[in-house]
C-alpha cells in the first residue's frame, strides 16, 4: 500500500509545471524514503532529478517499493481539477496499475477523486558521481529566469562565466550581443535576494538557451536557484522545494569545436 498526503497540492502542481516541458512521461519511484524521479528529456540532452522526502509529506506510507510510470500530460489534467488550496492524497495498492488522487478543499466541503492509469516505462537510470564544483552560485530564481529569457533573444547559447568579482551571463547572435553581470550581494535581512558565489577557480561554460529556459519553469518552487559548474561536467540547476526536497536539472556544456 502506498499513500502520500500533501496539504499544499499546489507544490506538486508546480513540480509538474516545471518538468512537463522536458518530459512526456516519467516513473515516480516510491519507497519509505519518499518519492524520487529521474528521467532524461526525449533528446537525452538534459536530466531531471526530483527528490521529495517522506518526512516532508503530512502523511506518508509505503509498505513496498513501487514504481509508478505516469503520462505527465494526463497527470497535468488531473491536477488541473484541483483547487489552489486543496490537500492532495495519492494512493496506490501494491502491484496496482492505477493510482488515485483525492483532492480535499480547505473547508472539507468538497472532495474529489481521480483514478489514473499507470504505464510500464522502461527508463534508464544514470549514476551521477559526486563532483567537486569549481563554483557554486546562489541567486534569486526570478532574476535567473529573467536573465535567461532576456539573453535568449540574442542567441541560441549563453556563456556563464564566474570569477571572484561576480557572475556574467553573455549571448551573441545576428542582432548583436548581450551581457548581464551580477556582483555578490549579501542581504542579511532578505536572504532570498542575495547573490552568493562559492568559488574554487574561475570557470566559463556555454549552455543551450532552450534547456536553460525550460529549467526556469521551476521558478515558482523556490526563491533561490543554485547553479553548480565545473569544466567538462554538466551544469546543475537546483531548486530547493521548502521542507519537501529538491528538483535538479543537469545539462552538459557545449564543447568548442
Amino acid at each position: 500500500m502506498f499513500e502520500a498526503r500533501l496539504v499544499n497540492s499546489s507544490t506538486f502542481r508546480k513540480v509538474l509545471d516545471a518538468i512537463k516541458d522536458l518530459l512526456n512521461e516519467a516513473s515516480f519511484d516510491c519507497s519509505e524514503n519518499g518519492i524520487q524521479l529521474q528521467a532524461m528529456d526525449s533528446s537525452h540532452v538534459s536530466l531531471v532529478s526530483l527528490n521529495l522526502k517522506s518526512d516532508g509529506f503530512d502523511k506518508f506510507r509505503c509498505d513496498r517499493n513501487l514504481t509508478m510510470g505516469m503520462n505527465l500530460t494526463s497527470l497535468g489534467k488531473v491536477f488541473k481539477c484541483s483547487g489552489a488550496d486543496d490537500t492532495v492524497t495519492m494512493k496506490a495498492q501494491d502491484y496496482a496499475d492505477t493510482v488515485t488522487f483525492m483532492f480535499e478543499s480547505k473547508k472539507q466541503d468538497k472532495i474529489s477523486d481521480y483514478e489514473m492509469k499507470l504505464m510500464n516505462l522502461d527508463q534508464e537510470h544514470l549514476g551521477i558521481p559526486d563532483t567537486e564544483f569549481s563554483c557554486i552560485i546562489k541567486m534569486p530564481s526570478i532574476e535567473f529566469a529573467r536573465i535567461i529569457r532576456d539573453l535568449s533573444q540574442f542567441g541560441e547559447s549563453i556563456v556563464i562565466s564566474c570569477t571572484k568579482e561576480g557572475v556574467k551571463f553573455s549571448a551573441q547572435g545576428d542582432i548583436g550581443t548581450g551581457n548581464v553581470k551580477l556582483a555578490q550581494t549579501h542581504n542579511f535581512d532578505k536572504e532570498e535576494e542575495s547573490v552568493t558565489i562559492d568559488l574554487q577557480e574561475p570557470v566559463a561554460l556555454t549552455f543551450a538557451c532552450q534547456y536553460l529556459n525550460s529549467f526556469t519553469k521551476a521558478t515558482p518552487l523556490s526563491n533561490q536557484v543554485k547553479l553548480s559548474m565545473c569544466e567538462n561536467v554538466p551544469l546543475v540547476v537546483e531548486y530547493q522545494i521548502p521542507e519537501l526536497g529538491h528538483l535538479r536539472f543537469y545539462l552538459a556544456p557545449k564543447i568548442e569545436e
Partner: peptide, 14 residues
C-alpha cells in the same frame, strides 16, 4: 552552433 552533448556521455548508465 556546436552540437549539444547527450547527458549519457557524462553519467554512467546503471
Amino acid at each position: 552552433e556546436n552540437p549539444q552533448q547527450p547527458i549519457v556521455n557524462y553519467f554512467k548508465n546503471l
